[in-house]
C-alpha cells in the first residue's frame, strides 16, 4: 500500500477506533480477568482460580446442564426471530416498496414506534393482554370459540419462548423493515421488468431475481438477529423473572448471567467471577458464528459485481 493511502486510512479510522478502544475494548479486556477469580463482585480480586470457572461452567454436574440449556434456548430464540423477521420484516418491506412512497413513509413510522417504548412498558402491556384468566387475548380467543389456541402463553413450557419471540418482534421489527426497504429500493427496475417479460411469476421473480440482489442485506440482518438473540434478556427477565420460568423454559445466557452475578429479589448470587466466565463463553460463541456470517456476507456482496 502506498504511503499516502496508508495515511488516509489511518486518518479515517483513528477517531472511531480510539474512542471505541478506550471506552469499550479497554474496559472489556480489563473485566475479563474477573473470570479467573473466585469473586463475588465486591472489593479487590484475591482468590485466583485459573480456568476453573470455565471448566465448572462447561463440565460440572451442577452448572453445565444449565449452561447448555441456556445456549440451546438462545439458538432456538434465534431461529424463531429469523422466521419472524423473514415473514414480517422482509414481507412488509416488500409490500412497502410496492405502494406509494408518501404512504409507505407513514407505515414505516408506525412500524418503528414500538422501538421507542421502553421494554418494561411493552412487557407490562403484553403481560396484561396475555393474563390467562381475564386478559384480552384469552378473552378474544374464548369468544371466537378458538379454545385450542387458548394456551397459557407465558406459563407454558412449550410456548413461553415463542411468545416472547413474538413480543420482541412486535417491538423491534421496525429496524429490519427499514433496512430491507433501503435494500429493496436499490434493486434496479430493469431486472424485474426483464424477469416479468420472461413470464416469471411474482414469487419466482422474488426468489430468483430480487433475493440474490438483497442477499448481503439479508445476511446483515441474520447477523444482527444472531447477536440480538444471544443478547436476549429484558423481556424474559421482566415477564418470567430471574428464574426464567416456567421451570427454566426461557432461561437464556442473559438471565443465567444475571442470576449468577446479581441474584435478584432475595435470591442469592453465586459470584461475579463465575458470571463473567459465562459472559466470556457466550461472547466467544457469538463471535465465532458472526465471523462466519460476516465472511458469507462479504462473499455475497462480492458476487454482485
Amino acid at each position: 500500500m502506498q504511503r499516502r493511502t496508508r495515511l488516509v486510512v489511518i486518518t479515517f479510522l483513528a477517531p472511531a477506533v480510539l474512542l471505541y478502544a478506550s471506552f469499550i475494548v479497554y474496559p472489556f479486556v480489563s473485566s475479563i480477568r474477573y473470570s479467573l477469580y473466585n469473586y463475588d463482585g465486591v472489593g479487590p480480586l484475591t482468590d485466583f482460580v485459573g480456568f476453573k470457572n470455565f471448566s465448572y461452567i462447561l463440565f460440572s454436574h451442577a452448572f453445565a446442564g444449565q449452561f447448555w440449556r441456556a445456549v440451546w434456548h438462545n439458538f432456538y430464540f434465534f431461529i424463531l426471530s429469523m422466521a419472524l423477521t423473514t415473514v414480517f420484516g422482509l414481507g412488509l418491506a416488500y409490500l412497502l416498496v410496492r405502494v406509494r412512497e408518501s404512504i409507505s413513509r407513514w407505515f414505516q413510522v408506525i412500524y418503528f414506534v414500538p422501538m421507542v417504548v421502553p421494554p418494561v412498558v411493552v412487557a407490562y402491556l403484553w403481560a396484561m393482554y396475555l393474563e390467562p384468566n381475564d386478559g384480552a387475548i384469552p378473552t378474544i380467543l374464548q369468544d371466537l370459540h378458538l379454545y385450542k389456541l387458548n394456551i397459557p402463553f407465558l406459563g407454558s413450557e412449550v410456548w413461553a419462548l415463542p411468545t416472547i419471540a413474538v413480543i420482541t418482534a412486535w417491538a423491534g421489527m421496525g429496524l429490519p423493515i427499514l433496512i430491507f426497504v433501503a435494500a429493496l429500493i436499490g434493486v434496479p427496475n430493469e431486472v424485474i421488468e426483464a424477469a416479468k417479460a420472461d413470464g416469471a411469476s411474482q414469487f419466482r421473480t422474488f426468489v430468483s431475481v430480487i433475493f440474490p440482489i438483497i442477499k448481503p442485506t439479508f445476511l446483515t440482518i441474520t447477523t444482527l438477529n444472531f447477536v440480538g438473540a444471544f443478547g436476549a434478556f429484558d423481556y424474559i427477565y421482566i415477564m418470567e423473572g430471574t428464574q426464567a420460568g416456567p421451570n427454566y423454559a426461557t432461561d437464556v445466557i442473559g438471565t443465567l448471567f444475571y442470576r449468577t452475578a446479581f441474584g435478584g429479589f432475595g435470591t442469592t448470587a453465586q459470584g461475579v467471577g463465575l458470571a463473567t466466565a459465562l459472559a466470556v463463553l457466550g461472547f466467544v460463541i457469538v463471535m465465532a458464528v458472526s465471523a462466519i456470517l460476516v465472511l458469507l456476507q462479504k462473499r455475497a456482496s462480492a458476487d454482485l459485481f
Binding site: 471505541y20 472489556f28 447477536v227 444471544f230 443478547g231 444475571y258 457469538v286
Partner: peptide, 29 residues
C-alpha cells in the same frame, strides 16, 4: 474500500461490541 492488514479484524472488533453484556464493563468504565 481499502485493503489493509487487520481490516477484517477491526471490522469484527466493532461487531463484537454488540455482543457485550454492559454490566460486565461497568466497573472498569
Amino acid at each position: 474500500r481499502f485493503q489493509f492488514i487487520g481490516n477484517q479484524l477491526i471490522y469484527l472488533g466493532f461487531l463484537a461490541g454488540l455482543a457485550l453484556p454492559i454490566q460486565m464493563i461497568a466497573v472498569p468504565l
